[in-house]
Write a protein that binds this DNA or RNA. Structure first.
Lengths: 212, 212
DNA sequence: CAAAATGTACTAACTAGTTCGTATGTCAAG
DNA sequence: CTTGACATACGAACTAGTTAGTACATTTTG
C-alpha cells in the first residue's frame, strides 16, 4: 500500500503527475499562460516545483500537457452518443444539447481554448495528439444532415463543418464571453432559466435554418 | 508647427498618448495582459517607458485605456446605421452584416475582449466608461423585432438580448476561435468564400429562427 | 519663470529554471 | 530472503535573468 506516514515519503509518480495537472489546469485557465505562476502551482500541489520540471520539462510543457488532457476528455465524451437510431431532427437536437451541456459544465476547457487562440494555437499545432483529434462529430453531423435531407425533413444542404461551427459558436460564446456580456447587459448567463432558454434556442435556430 | 528636428525635441502630448495606445493595443492583443511587456511597448513607441507611466500610471492603467478606446470605437460605429426606414427583415440582415464585418475587420478588438473575459471582466467592471456603454443595439433590435412581429413577418417573440447574443456569438467566434478551429478542421476562416458563406449563413439562421 | 513633458539610468522584486543531495523501489545475485 | 546496486522519484535552497516601476535631471512651452 502506498500510504503516507507522518512524514515518511511514498513514491507515487502517477498520482503526483495527476495532482500537478489538476492544479495547473486551474492556474492556467484562470491566469493564462504568461499569467500563470509555476511557484503558485507548486504551492497548491502536495509536491514541489522540482517535480513539475522533472515531469513536464518546463512551463510550456506543462501547459501543453494540460491542454492535451483537456482535449482528450471531450474526445471520449463525443464518441459514446448513439444517434444513428434516432430521427434526424431528434438526433441533431440531442447532439446540440450535449455540446451545450459540455461547454456549460467545463468552463476551464473553454477558457483554455480561448487562451490557446490568443497564442494563435501555436501549442496545439505542435501537439500531434490534439492536431490529429479524430473529429468524429463532423461525420456524425454529416450523417444526420444527409438522412434528414433524403427524408425531406431538411430542405437545405448544409456543410457539416459550418453547422458544427454554428453550434459551437453559440455554446462556446455563452461561456467564454460570460463576463463581458454579463457586465454590459447586466444579465447572468449562468442563471438556470437562461440556460434552459438558450439550450432550446440554439437547437431551434439550427433546425429552422436547415428546414428553411 | 510641432515638427521634429534633427535631435531637437518637440512636445506633443496628444500624439504621444495616441502613439502609446496604438502600440499597446497591438501588444496587449497579441500577448495578453500578463504576457505584454511594458519595455517592448516602449521600444516600439517613438517615446520612452517613462511616458507610459507618466500618462497611464501603470501597466493596468494602460491596459484599461486600451480597452476603453476599443469599446469607444464600436459604440460610434453602431449608432450611425439608419435601419428604421427599412423593412424588418432587411433591417435585421443589414445589422447582422455590419456586426459580422466589424468583427472580421477588428481582430484586435475581439482578442482584447477574449482577454478581458479571462480576467473575469475585472477591469471592465472598474471602468464606468465601458460599463455604461449605451447599448443602443438592443433598442435597435427590439424595434426591428416588434415591427416584424406586428407585420406578421416574424412568428416568434424573441428577447432582443438573446438575439443579439446569437448574432454576436457567431460573428465573434469565427474570429476569436479562428486558430484552434482552423487547426482542428483544417479550414481557413479568413478565406474569402468562407467569409461570404458565413455572412449569409448567420443572417439566414436568425431570420429563419424568428420566422419559425 | 513655472508647469508640463520628456529622457536616462537605475532598482527592487519577481520568476523560470537549476543544483545538489536524499529517499524509495526493484531486481539480480548470493 | 536479504543484500546491495542502480534507476527512478523526490525536496530545499539557490541563481541568473527579467520586468514593472522610479529618481533625477533636462527640455519645452505658455
Amino acid at each position: 500500500m502506498a500510504e503516507r506516514g507522518e512524514n515518511g515519503r511514498k513514491n507515487d509518480p502517477q498520482q503526483t503527475k495527476e495532482d500537478i495537472l489538476l492544479v495547473a489546469t486551474e492556474e492556467f485557465s484562470t491566469h493564462g499562460l504568461a499569467g500563470a505562476r509555476v511557484d503558485s502551482i507548486a504551492e497548491k500541489t502536495r509536491t514541489s516545483k522540482r517535480m513539475i520540471y522533472y515531469y513536464f520539462g518546463n512551463k510550456e510543457g506543462l501547459y501543453l500537457a494540460v491542454l492535451e488532457q483537456s482535449y482528450r476528455k471531450i474526445r471520449s465524451l463525443e464518441s459514446d452518443l448513439h444517434l444513428s437510431n434516432l430521427e434526424p431532427e431528434e438526433a441533431l437536437r440531442t447532439l446540440i444539447s450535449t455540446t451545450f451541456d459540455h461547454d456549460e459544465a467545463n468552463p476551464d476547457f473553454v477558457r483554455l481554448v480561448s487562451i490557446e487562440n490568443i497564442h494563435h494555437a501555436a501549442h496545439m499545432l505542435r501537439s500531434e495528439a490534439i492536431r490529429d483529434l479524430n473529429v468524429s462529430v463532423i461525420e456524425t453531423i454529416a450523417g444526420i444532415l444527409e438522412r434528414g435531407f433524403d427524408q425531406g425533413i431538411f430542405r437545405r444542404k448544409a456543410d457539416p463543418i459550418d453547422i458544427h461551427m454554428m453550434i459551437s459558436a453559440f455554446c462556446f460564446f455563452r461561456v467564454s464571453n460570460r463576463y463581458t456580456f454579463g457586465t454590459i447587459f447586466r444579465r447572468n448567463l449562468s442563471d438556470g432559466d437562461t440556460i434552459e432558454r438558450h439550450r432550446g434556442m440554439i437547437a431551434d435556430a439550427v433546425v429552422s435554418y436547415l428546414k428553411s
